[in-house]
Amino acid sequence: MSIIPIEFFQKPTLELARDLLGCELVKETDEGTASGYIVETEAYIGPEDRASHSFNNKRTKRTEAMFGPAGTVYTYVMHTHCLVNVVSAESEKPEAVLIRAVEPVIGKDLMYKRRGDKKEIDLTNGPGKLTKALGIIKSDYGRTYTEPPLYLREGIKPESISSGKRIGIENSGEARDYPWRYWITGNRFVSR
């Protein structure tokens, strides 16, 4: 399967959040390669979205990647977990899509080594779990998703997509109710 070209990312954020479902997220490391089909995403629509890191055009060292071109990798640490996003929209319009869960494809043994003695269902069914399992780290920040070591490939076409409220953003006013979380209906690796 070929790496997805940069043009794929150049679309409205909510559309990209749905279109990422089924794509294969791949990370190459010295330990080996691990990948998973994206099964859950959340969209964050920049300056107008109280749940977004770039709410009110907040530009910091942490959010700088969000102001870059679509297809840029935006990683950050929340609590003790590294989370990974796909920057969307055009440059200077800070929007992104959080990758919330993947279904393991390549490197399951490596994922078990990184995550410990877990059930397969628990390897990658959350945004911090999937980054640890795949070996995605904070220093992946600012790369593009179109070349190794972190990239997307064509994957599976979802038969059905569901949507609902985003998770873990209770203190964001009306934004907590926006139905901007998308998942492959019935997939067992969805986070909740």
Rank of each mutant, 00 (worst) to 15 (best):
K157R: 14
G135E: 07
A65Q: 11
Y141K: 08
S88D: 08
A101E: 00
R50T: 11
I106H: 09
K93R: 15
A70Y: 08
V102G: 00
G71C: 01
P47R: 13
A133H: 08
K61N: 13
K108G: 01
Y44F: 09
K138E: 08
S52K: 07
A43T: 08
L130C: 04
I137A: 13
E120I: 01
R50W: 07
K58P: 12
G68M: 14
E92Y: 13
C82Q: 06
D109W: 11
A101P: 01
M111I: 05
G107A: 00
I45Q: 13
K138P: 10
L123Y: 02
V102R: 00
E154R: 14
G116S: 04
I45H: 13
V86R: 03
Y151L: 06
V87G: 01
K119Q: 08
A65N: 13
E90R: 15
A43K: 04
L150G: 01
S52N: 09
A89G: 08
I121R: 09
K93H: 14
Y112N: 00
D109V: 03
L123V: 05
T63D: 09
K118V: 00
T60I: 08
P148Y: 03
D140Q: 01
A133G: 09
A65G: 10
I156K: 11
K138W: 11
D140M: 06
R153K: 14
P47A: 13
V84H: 04
S54M: 04
K129P: 11
I137V: 15
A70L: 07
R50D: 10
N85W: 01
I136P: 00
I99R: 05
R100G: 04
P47M: 12
H53R: 04
V77K: 06
S162Y: 10
D140Y: 07
P47V: 11
N125C: 09
I45F: 14
